[in-house]
Amino acid sequence: MTLPLIAVLNGPNLNMLGLRQPEVYGSATLDDVEQLCAETAEGLGLAIDFRQTNSEGELISWVQECRGRASGIVINPAGLSHTSISLMDALLSAELPVVEVHISNIHRREQFRHHSYISKIATGVLCGFGTHGYALGLTAMARILEGGL
């Protein structure tokens, strides 16, 4: 039996987790997040494809590759949330459920972070739960795929 594949995609600067503003983003590294996602996915009967890029174009290409390949997308678009209509359009064209994850609560931060183009098209949004938001996002995705959400 092939497990449903979930793309766990990460945008710019998330490779700096554990180093960049630990008072905002915590001390966990991106490797820690990947391990958390792998363990969570295994428990949920999901497979993951975990990736990070600092390039908007590369992230858009990865989203496009998900169409017909993945069952859903869990994405932390980072700063691209607030600026990238192109990423929003790519997610729409993938025609997959999308769960948007942010480590910090973007609504408690600077005003420009309060708006996310991705939130407008996401099935659901998680923010402010630290890196545990990824586990919550995968759990929500499993429920979505089961028809429970």
Score class of each variant (00 low, 15 high):
Met1Trp: 04
Met1Leu: 12
Met1Lys: 09
Met1Thr: 11
Thr2Ala: 13
Thr2Asn: 15
Leu3Asp: 01
Pro4Arg: 09
Ile6Ser: 10
Ile6Cys: 01
Val8Pro: 07
Val8Gly: 02
Val8Ala: 03
Val8Leu: 03
Leu9Lys: 05
Gly11Asp: 12
Gly11Asn: 02
Pro12Ala: 10
Pro12Thr: 02
Pro12Glu: 03
Pro12Ile: 03
Asn13Phe: 07
Asn15Trp: 00
Asn15Ile: 00
Leu17Val: 07
Gly18Thr: 04
Gly18Trp: 08
Leu19Lys: 14
Arg20Val: 01
Gln21Val: 05
Pro22Asn: 02
Pro22Asp: 06
Gly26Trp: 01
Ser27Ile: 06
Ala28Gln: 14
Ala28Asn: 14
Ala28Ser: 15
Thr29Pro: 09
Thr29Trp: 11
Leu30Gly: 07
Asp32Gln: 02
Asp32Leu: 05
Asp32Ala: 13
Val33Asn: 00
Leu36Phe: 08
Ala38Glu: 15
Ala38Met: 11
Glu39Ile: 04
Thr40Leu: 11
Ala41Ser: 04
Ala41Cys: 01
Ala41Ile: 00
Leu44Trp: 00
Gly45Met: 04
Gly45Pro: 06
Leu46Ser: 01
Leu46Thr: 03
Phe50His: 12
Phe50Lys: 10
Glu58Ser: 12
Leu59Arg: 09
Leu59Ser: 08
Ile60Arg: 12
Ser61Val: 14
Ser61Tyr: 12
Val63Asn: 11
Val63Thr: 05
Glu65Leu: 13
Glu65Cys: 08
Glu65Asn: 01
Cys66Thr: 13
Arg67Pro: 06
Gly68Ser: 07
Gly68Phe: 11
Arg69Phe: 04
Ala70Met: 06
Ser71Glu: 15
Gly72Pro: 02
Ile73Phe: 04
Val74Thr: 10
Val74Met: 06
Ile75Glu: 05
Asn76Asp: 14
Asn76Trp: 10
Pro77Glu: 12
Leu80Phe: 14
Ser84Cys: 05
Ile85Arg: 08
Met88Cys: 10
Asp89Ser: 07
Ala90Lys: 05
Ala90Cys: 07
Leu91Gln: 03
Leu92Ile: 14
Ser93Gly: 00
Ala94Pro: 03
Ala94Tyr: 06
Ala94Trp: 08
Leu96Ser: 08
Val98Glu: 04
Glu100Leu: 06
Val101Ala: 12
Ser104Asp: 06
Ser104Lys: 03
Asn105Gln: 05
Ile106Asn: 00
His107Tyr: 13
His107Glu: 13
Arg108His: 14
Arg108Val: 04
Glu110Pro: 10
Gln111Trp: 13
Phe112Asp: 12
Arg113Tyr: 08
Ser116Asp: 02
Tyr117Cys: 13
Ser119Thr: 13
Lys120Met: 11
Ala122Tyr: 06
Thr123Ser: 13
Thr123Met: 11
Gly124Arg: 14
Val125Arg: 15
Val125Lys: 11
Leu126Gln: 00
Gly128Phe: 09
Phe129Ala: 14
Gly133Pro: 06
Ala135His: 08
Gly137Ser: 00
Gly137Lys: 00
Thr139Met: 00
Thr139Arg: 02
Ala140Arg: 01
Ala142Trp: 07
Arg143Thr: 09
Arg143Trp: 14
Ile144Cys: 08
Leu145Phe: 10
Glu146Cys: 09
Gly148Asn: 14
Gly148Ser: 10
Leu149Lys: 07
Leu149Glu: 13
